[in-house]
Simulated scan of single mutants.
Amino acid sequence: MATRDFHLSYTVYDSVDALPSEDAALMRAALDATRLSYAPYSRFRVGAAARMQSGAIVSGSNQENASYPVGICAERTLLSVASTLYPGEPIDTLAVTAAGSREPISPCGICRQSLLEFQGRTGRPLRLLMGGEFGPVWVVEDARGLLPLAFTTDNLLP
């Protein structure tokens, strides 16, 4: 029998203003994306912005639906846009935030799985910035850290 531990290392910045300028701009782009959110039911407006490996910026926002399961989170909207506009290109850094939030928000479980799958497809770690409109920002260098014991393509039978 063996006991193993999971450890997640992340950096905490006091605010968006404390981030390096390139990351602060990305967080502001994610906040701008919240304006495109369609969230009449939850009123939880989430925006995401990513800097592609080429330097291009892509954004997405959550899109709710009266039939709740068919809504889509900001992160998955962004991944769809990125993989359509820049097929095969890795994301360098992805920022996610919510309008009005004073606490960092992190991707939900299905988004964590989607981020990990995207990272696996491109073969490059996906760096995450997670914040609210106000307050601290958490930085994780590899999306894999958010989903220990993940189900991946390696688990699929041949």
Rank of each mutant, 00 (worst) to 15 (best):
P87L: 07
T84D: 03
G60K: 02
P90E: 08
R43Q: 15
R127V: 00
Y41I: 14
G55S: 04
I57M: 05
F118C: 10
S21R: 14
T11S: 14
S61V: 02
F118L: 13
P69Y: 02
T3Y: 10
G123E: 05
I91F: 10
P125M: 10
R45M: 04
S9P: 08
E89K: 04
R35W: 05
F6M: 15
T153P: 01
L19N: 03
P104I: 00
T153S: 08
R45G: 07
C111D: 09
Q119N: 01
G131W: 01
R43W: 08
S67Y: 12
P87Y: 06
S114D: 13
D154C: 12
R124G: 08
E103G: 05
P136N: 11
Q63L: 12
Y38H: 15
S59V: 14
Y13C: 07
V58F: 04
L147C: 07
L157G: 04
R127F: 01
P87T: 12
E141H: 08
L19D: 02
V81E: 09
F118G: 06
A98I: 05
S114N: 13
R127T: 03
L157T: 11
F151K: 13
R4S: 10
I91K: 04
N62A: 15
S15K: 04
V58M: 06
P107F: 02
P158A: 13
D17G: 15
R102D: 14
A30W: 00
E22P: 09
R35E: 08
Q119G: 03
A48V: 08
I105E: 01
M1E: 02
L126N: 00
V139I: 07
G135I: 03
A74L: 03
P69E: 09
G71K: 05
P20S: 07
D17E: 15
R102V: 09
Y38F: 14
Q113I: 11
L146S: 00
R45F: 06
A24F: 05
R4A: 12
